[in-house]
């Protein structure tokens, strides 16, 4: 692939490999920056670190045109349904990077309102330590996702394996905040009547 200017300007491959190669080198990120990690993510996209070298420079703020979700920052109880709705809108195949301590584990915010790791709710392909991680770490995670994409792997695909479809206990289970989301849309019930002290 990509061999030009020689007399042998052709190569043999399988269609699957060719498609995976193309996908790995044109990851379109959907940035979800909610904290300081978002600033480091922006730095990684800028000229100095330049994710364009990896074919990943097209920042799509529309989930329907992207295949790499970058969760960079704290995700609160109220934001998680929004994030999951965005994840569900992204077309398959799709990958997810959990950037920084807060997105991966809640970080220092072990409080009532913060999600302790987004991997409880959406499948995560690459975790990035750091508070916030440097852009080099971001590039490392991006290359890890590229390696997975070249092999045709994605965490979001694990649960469609033969094992999982025959036995739900072997499938990957995720929590869904959907009930919270729907309830949040329902303005008919005054919330103060339900709330205890």
């Amino acid at each position: 692939m990509g061999v030009t200017g020689t007399t042998n300007d052709w190569a043999t491959t399988t269609l699957e490999t060719a498609v995976n190669w193309a996908r790995a080198n044109s990851l379109w990120p959907m940035p979800f920056g909610t904290a300081c990690c978002g600033i480091e993510m922006m730095a990684a996209f800028m000229a100095k670190y330049d994710t364009a070298r990896f074919g990943s420079e097209v920042m799509k703020f529309s989930p329907r045109q992207s295949d790499l979700l970058i969760v960079s920052g704290r995700i609160s109880l109220k934001m998680m349904p929004v994030l999951q709705r965005i994840w569900e809108q992204m077309p398959e195949p799709k990958w997810c990077i959990s950037m920084g301590a807060c997105a991966s584990s809640g970080g220092v915010f072990d409080t009532y309102t913060l999600i302790q790791g987004v991997d409880q709710f959406i499948p995560v392909d690459a975790y990035m330590p750091g508070c916030p991680p440097r852009p080099e770490a971001f590039l490392d995670a991006l290359m890890m996702v590229q390696e997975k994409a070249k092999k045709g792997q994605a965490k979001s695909q694990e649960y469609v394996s033969a094992d999982a479809s025959s036995d739900p206990a072997k499938s990957v289970a995720y929590r869904t905040p959907d009930t919270h989301y729907r309830h949040g849309m329902d303005r008919s019930t005054p919330s103060r009547e339900k709330s205890g002290g």
Binding site: L77, Y112, T113, I115, A173, Y174, R175, T176, T179
Partner: peptide, 13 residues
Amino acid sequence: RGERGNFPVYHAT
């Protein structure tokens, strides 16, 4: 009081 973990679980299959 457990709000963080009380989301319902669904099996992706």
